[in-house]
Design a protein around this nucleic acid. Structure first.
Lengths: 338, 338
DNA sequence: TTTCTGCTTGACATCGATGTCAGATCGTCT
DNA sequence: AGACGATCTGACATCGATGTCAAGCAGAAA
């Protein structure tokens, strides 16, 4: 099937292509009746302007880039789904890119890819939203950027995030309210800035409750199941084990769950476990994990909105949005049995 | 930073833009020494042709579409990762699209999206790879299609798949070899054709071993954790329960695992459980799930290769590739205890 | 020598949209 | 009536690449 062109619409409407272009882009200076006629023809024919030609002539692009470290994570999948839905609604398209620093020329590759295809904007997710080389790259190429939950350089670009510290604190408060006084914490990948925030929230809650935070109770993980398993084993096989463990994400919490099971420790009767993220597996574990639900879909949608906001006159968007979280208290946490 | 153009390269190399274009596209009729000179300048400058302009003038596109039903599934994420890596290596870009049939105008939306942006090819994943309206749409717009594990219309497009039936049969054989004679099976979403193939393989193995397949042992699920949990409860709370359960995917198998745990049935001592797909959770469950490892990354890479094969003279690619699976026998299966 | 074929090259039109600018139309003010 | 500004419209150039085609030039065949 041959694609429709501006000219086809123009001929049918009895005006010049330029006028059709005006109507499509909502420009001023078109007589209302002409505008209406053209709009009707456009709708009838189902005309959509060719994005490539558009980009070429106006250097405005209808492609947004979504940049990932690891697209296999549930986190990434959620963000993608949210961004996708919003893009579709706005007539934009989403190009996904995976960037890792495991090769020396990773930055050159990114640049090469940008050269070939100008983006209307880019969404950067953790941890690569904190790589200064990448931010420099986009700045150099004048590509508007919105970062999801950035850790560093708060003023360099627009951002969408969540109050990770507050959420961690609130979840810890919930554990304390259940009677737990000896709570273990498993940190996340230090490269993700969120990991530090979550630890911070945990500490704040403990301190506020007047509880000690012995170093042996705070273990280093890296957001993987395996690291959660190892940390769980270590915490649970100690002579005195904590009555609750808070892992900085759900995968690690699942690892703790498995460690408990291996050691014959009943959850939540003998041990409460909490995670963070509300990944799909949180609901699928047994017992289902208590965790923090992050508004990933909304965050991604908000990022798309920021990038596509029509008023771009003042350059790149600068807003910093903070979206609300919700606690999901399920069955992996319960009152402390003395 | 201002992008480089063909003309910049041409000026520096002292030839016409057209000649540079010839070198870049590997066309014939360029003197070897000129070709070398131009190539050197291209490399020095790091020039990459503008994909939009290229598409506009040649109606060849460097964008591939990856079409999903649900991008949140581990299956989808794997395919995406595989496709992404291959695209990057070939200088293509990947646009992801989510298509669901929950709105009446879903097809019109797809068409509208195609109108705006011509694709160099599309990869369709289950279940939408079997929607005839979608196949018609791509055919109408002359977009080459490769389907992943299609169920119907085997000759309509090129395809990449795996021997689902053989894998299910082999896994069932493994259970039988462990001494199991009473094996429950949980079917997948009937809309996914793979579900039927897996059942078929299960039946073939049972029949070949001379074992009965009572209807009460074959339950209908829909590939979700919840359905696996329900089916598991049903099978395990019956007066005589099977000694092994084979679920058509890992999520459902996890549901069975949780059902077993709820009912105090030890795995694998009192019950063997097997899944299919080798999703990340399979390794994260306790005990780790026995399952079938699908070569998702390779399948996606193969699909990209088919779509970008330079020789497109004879129209759309027609190959049907079948990639090898491997059995992953972990700890959720064991010998039957009498 | 002339003609022919095949290789090599660049001038120019083209893809489908938008930017620029000049011209046309209208009402209003002097 | 004439001048003016605001509104409306379309002709034309332009974005950056490739397709087409003809010209230039070599060596081979007549």
């Amino acid at each position: 099937m041959k694609p429709l062109t501006l000219k086809d619409v123009a001929d049918k409407a009895g005006v010049s292509p330029k006028t059709v272009s005006r109507v499509i882009n909502g420009e001023a200076y078109v007589r209302p009746e002409v505008r209406e006629t053209v709009q009707r023809v456009v709708d009838e024919l189902g005309y959509r302007p060719n994005a490539f030609a558009r980009e070429l002539s106006s250097s405005r692009s209808f492609l947004l880039g979504l940049y990932f470290d690891d697209p296999a994570s549930a986190y990434a999948a959620d963000l993608q789904r949210g961004a996708l839905a919003r893009c579709r609604a706005l007539g934009y398209h989403l190009v996904v890119e995976q960037v890792t620093r495991d090769r020396a020329d990773w930055l050159a590759e990114c640049e090469s890819s940008l050269r070939a295809m100008r983006l209307g904007g880019a969404i950067l997710t953790p941890p690569l939203c904190d790589w200064p080389e990448l931010l420099d790259l986009f700045a150099r190429w004048d590509v508007a950027v919105v970062r999801i939950s950035p850790g560093d350089f708060p003023d360099r670009t627009a951002a969408v995030d969540m109050d990770e510290c507050g959420a961690a604190r609130e979840l810890t408060d919930a554990l304390i309210a259940l009677g737990h006084r000896d709570i273990g914490f498993i940190q996340g990948n230090p490269e993700h800035h969120a990991a530090a925030r979550r630890l911070e929230g945990f500490r704040a809650a403990m301190t506020a409750a007047g509880l000690p935070i012995p170093p042996t109770r705070t273990l280093q993980g890296d957001f993987t199941f395996r690291s959660g398993l190892a940390a769980g084993e270590q915490l649970l096989t100690a002579a005195d084990r904590p009555s609750a463990i808070f892992a900085a994400n759900d995968e690690m919490a699942l690892g703790v769950l498995v460690a408990a099971m291996r050691n014959g420790i009943a959850v939540p009767d003998q041990l409460s476990i909490a995670g963070f993220d509300d990944a799909p597996i949180a609901r699928m574990a047994w017992p289902p994990l208590s965790t923090v639900h992050q508004p990933h879909l909304d965050m991604a949608a908000a990022a798309v909105d920021l990038l596509t906001r029509p008023a771009r006159g003042d350059g790149a968007p600068r807003a910093a949005l903070r979206l609300p979280y919700t606690l999901a208290l399920r069955d992996s946490t319960g009152p402390r049995r003395s």
